[in-house]
C-alpha cells in the first residue's frame, strides 16, 4: 500500500460533517481465479460544497468507487459516510434524493424504449414532485436541449445529446451531491463549456458537492479543488489543483500523467 497524501485534505474536514467520507474502502468483483480487486483501501473526504476529482488510469476503479457509493456494487468493505450517515448494504429512498449519479456511457444509460419525456417524468414522479411538465421544460433548457427533443427516443439523439438528457435526469431530484462519471467526455467542447458552466452555477446556487471522474485534467482542473490520482485500484496521491498546475506531485505515476497531458503525442508525430 502506498502512502497517501492526506495533508491538504484534512483542514477542510475539521469544521462541519463532510458530505462524503470514504475510509479504507475496498471493492472486489468475482471470486477465486477471476477475482478482481477493483479498489484497494481507498481513503478520501469531501466537505460539503467541495468538488473533488478522481483521475487515473483506465480500469483503475474510478467508476467502481462511484458505483459502490450509490449501492450498485454490493461487494465492498470499509466505511462510507454520506452527510455523516454510515452507509450499509441497502440505500434508502432518502439517500437517492441526496445523491445522484451521471453514468459514463451515454449510449448505455438511457432506456432504448423510453422517450426523453418518459425518462424525466418518471424520475420526477418517483421523487414525488408536482408540476412535472414545467420542471421537464426547465431541466431541458438548463442542459441546452430545446423542446423539440422532449419526445424523442434515444436512437434519435447523438451521443452528446444523450449525455445531456442523462445530466438532466441526475439534476431532476435536486440532489445535494452529484457523482459525475466522465460527464463531458462524450460532449464537444462548446457543449462541454456550457455544461461545466451549468455545474459551476448550480454549485454556487445550491451549494452542491461534486465527485467527478474524468481523464481530462483540464476539465478536472476547471471544476475541482482537489484531485485523487488512481492507479490499479489504489489512490496513489491526493493533491490540490494548484499543485497539479505547478506539477508539484510526488508520485511518479502522477508526474507521468501530468507530463503527458501537457505536451503529449506531439513528440511522436
Amino acid at each position: 500500500m502506498s502512502e497517501i497524501n492526506h495533508v491538504r485534505n484534512t483542514d477542510a474536514t475539521t469544521s462541519s460533517t463532510p458530505a462524503i467520507e470514504i475510509d479504507n474502502l475496498s471493492v472486489w468483483f468475482g471470486h477465486g481465479h477471476d477475482r478482481v480487486d477493483a479498489v484497494k483501501s481507498a481513503n478520501f473526504n469531501l466537505p460539503t460544497g467541495a468538488s473533488f476529482g478522481l483521475v487515473g488510469e483506465s480500469g483503475s476503479g474510478k467508476s467502481t468507487i462511484l458505483r459502490a457509493l450509490t449501492g450498485l456494487v454490493k461487494t465492498w468493505q470499509g466505511t462510507m459516510r454520506v452527510n455523516g450517515h454510515d452507509l450499509g448494504k441497502k440505500r434508502s429512498k432518502d439517500f437517492y434524493k441526496q445523491v445522484q449519479m451521471v453514468f459514463q456511457d451515454p449510449y448505455a444509460s438511457l432506456h432504448p424504449r423510453h422517450s426523453v419525456d418518459q425518462v424525466l417524468s418518471e424520475t420526477l414522479s418517483l421523487h414525488k414532485f408536482k408540476n412535472i411538465n414545467d420542471r421537464i421544460e426547465k431541466l431541458l433548457t438548463d442542459v441546452g436541449l430545446g423542446p423539440q427533443f422532449r419526445f424523442r427516443y434515444p436512437h434519435q439523439l447523438s451521443g452528446g445529446q444523450r449525455q445531456r438528457v442523462a445530466i438532466a435526469r441526475a439534476l431532476a431530484p435536486e440532489p445535494s451531491i452529484l457523482l459525475l462519471d466522465e460527464p463531458t467526455s462524450a460532449l464537444d467542447v462548446s457543449v462541454q463549456a456550457e455544461i461545466l458552466n451549468l455545474l459551476t452555477d448550480l454549485r454556487e446556487e445550491q451549494n452542491l458537492t461534486y465527485l467527478m471522474v474524468s481523464h481530462n485534467l483540464a476539465v478536472v482542473g476547471h471544476l475541482c479543488e482537489n484531485i485523487a490520482v488512481m492507479q490499479n485500484g489504489e489512490i496513489v496521491e491526493i493533491l490540490s489543483v494548484e499543485d497539479m498546475r505547478e506539477l508539484k506531485s510526488t508520485h511518479p505515476y502522477t508526474q507521468n500523467l501530468l507530463q503527458s497531458s501537457l505536451g503529449f503525442v506531439r513528440e511522436e508525430c
Binding site: 467542447v189 462541454q192 463549456a193 456550457e194 461545466l196 458552466n197 483540464a218 476539465v219 476547471h222 501537457l262
Partner: peptide, 20 residues
C-alpha cells in the same frame, strides 16, 4: 474559433468558460 475559446486550460484557470 469559438470552439477553441471554450476549451478549459490547465495552465490558465478561468471562472467561467466562454460559451459559443
Amino acid at each position: 474559433q469559438g470552439l477553441l475559446n471554450s476549451l478549459p486550460r490547465l495552465d490558465t484557470p478561468v471562472n467561467r468558460l466562454q460559451v459559443l
